[in-house]
């Protein structure tokens, strides 16, 4: 009886010891990766909400930083707009062009002290150039704000004004 108990106990002990070792090994592996290095996407900066299109699917025209407000911008364009911006110093985008300015608040890059990266999006603006019935261009401006992004502004004009002028007047960043 006592013998059986002993062997049972030793088996239990061995199992406990093994699981302890295993746990330690696992913990060792997990703590091995510095949390700054651990693989993850930047979920904070995702454009969530009801946008008509995802500007991240377009091409980059230029970017900017507002140091005082700690925000960063990227101006995207669809193919028509990008083709025009990269070959013209003027700002008369042809019909079919759409520009989109995404504004993100900034966060410190956890993997590089000395750099800031996008955090939550603050706004996404669009300017679409279309031909009106009189064959003159119309500029349709839309703005989305908040989290998730919701439409807060929509205007149409025959000439770029205010924010739509701001978007249209940016010059393309040099990309040889």
């Amino acid at each position: 009886m006592s013998l059986m108990n002993k062997s049972k106990r030793s088996r239990t002990n061995r199992a406990a010891l093994l699981s302890a070792v295993f746990t330690l090994l696992l913990a060792g592996c997990a703590s091995d990766v510095n949390p700054r290095v651990a693989t993850r996407p930047n979920n904070d900066a995702a454009l969530t909400g009801d946008l008509p299109v995802n500007p991240l699917q377009w091409k980059v025209i230029t970017s900017a930083i507002d140091k005082q407000n700690s925000t960063m911008y990227t101006l995207f364009g669809n193919d028509v707009a990008v083709q025009y911006a990269r070959t013209h110093a003027q700002h008369d985008y042809p019909a079919g062009s759409t520009l989109s300015l995404v504004t993100w608040s900034q966060q410190e890059d956890p993997r590089w002290f000395g750099g800031n990266i996008p955090s939550a999006p603050k706004s996404v603006e669009f300017v679409a150039v279309a031909l009106g019935p009189d064959k003159k261009p119309t500029y349709v401006y839309q703005e989305f704000e908040g989290s998730p992004l919701k439409k807060t502004s929509s205007q149409e004009s025959t000439a770029p004004d205010g924010r739509s002028a701001y978007l249209v007047n940016q010059r393309a960043a040099v990309m040889p």
Binding site: N42, A45, L56, Q57, W58, K59, V60, S63, I65, M72, T74, F76, Q106, D109, W112, G114, G115, N116, I117, P118
Partner: peptide
């Protein structure tokens, strides 16, 4: 396509 941007101060 853009996957991120950085402001390298």
């Amino acid at each position: 396509k853009a996957i991120s941007s950085t402001d390298r101060f």
